[in-house]
């Protein structure tokens, strides 16, 4: 009898615990605003990326931009401990001639900063969808205080050698964003938005005729 009571109490506790963590505390309006914030952060990262490959900036400045970009990610793009595991956020990279590869974000950024230095290209330009044009999925309650959404954008890359475009492509990317609703310590709550893994979905070649005066065209999605 005592064992049965204990089991019932445990089941009750599990149900209560589960309910607490299944609770969605955000209104639809809040979710929309937070989704736009995720797009702003994705746009901010893209802007940093365009600076990281801009030979007009010194190496010190490009590294500064890299650190700012890393700050936007979960664990500041370093390893972080979650649910008993060490994790790191990843960025998928595609090109026309190589299969899709996945790198830790920080390695991807380091490779971008060193792109010109390594002499692969004389200069490179990376352009992405404007923030207002980015598509954001509905913010989804995942578990407990965690929410998720995906920001879709197009990234255009062009590497130049001797003033002429050597290689250009356009990749569709989906940035996963993690949102935490946490206690602010004063009886209220606050939101934290982080960028997470980024998936590349499709890469297409850009014709040199699409590139005018060094500007890269971002088509409507």
């Amino acid at each position: 009898m005592k064992t049965l009571k204990t089991i019932i109490l445990m089941l009750f506790a599990v149900c209560l615990f589960g309910q607490t963590f299944a609770q969605d505390y955000l209104s639809d309006d809040q979710k929309k605003f937070i989704g736009r914030r995720a797009a702003q952060k994705t746009g901010q990262m893209n802007n940093y990326i365009s600076y990281m490959v801009d030979e007009g900036y010194s190496m010190k400045e490009r590294e500064d931009y890299m650190q700012s970009a890393k700050d936007l990610f979960l664990g500041r793009a370093e390893e972080y401990y979650e649910e008993g595991y060490w994790k790191i956020v990843n960025m998928q990279v595609t090109s026309l001639y190589n299969p899709t590869r996945t790198y830790p974000v920080k390695l991807y950024f380091e490779s971008l900063v060193g792109l010109i230095k390594r002499g692969v290209y004389d200069c490179a330009k990376i352009n992405t969808t404007e923030i207002a044009d980015m598509q954001v999925s509905t913010l989804r309650h995942v578990y407990g205080n965690e929410y998720e959404c995906t920001v879709a954008y197009v990234q255009t890359f062009c590497g130049y050698k001797d003033g002429r475009p050597l290689y250009c492509d356009r990749t569709k990317k989906n940035m996963k964003c993690r949102v935490y609703l946490i206690s602010d310590g004063d009886g209220g709550s606050e939101i934290e938005v982080y960028l997470s893994d980024c998936h590349a979905t499709e890469t297409t070649r850009i014709k040199p005729s699409d590139i005018t005066n060094g500007d890269l065209l971002i088509p409507d999605r």
């Binding site: 809040q30 605003f33 937070i34 736009r36 952060k41 602010d184 606050e190 939101i191 934290e192 938005v193």
Partner: peptide, 9 residues
Amino acid sequence: DGNYNVDTE
């Protein structure tokens, strides 16, 4: 609009 907290850093 709405005065919602959307991020904290």
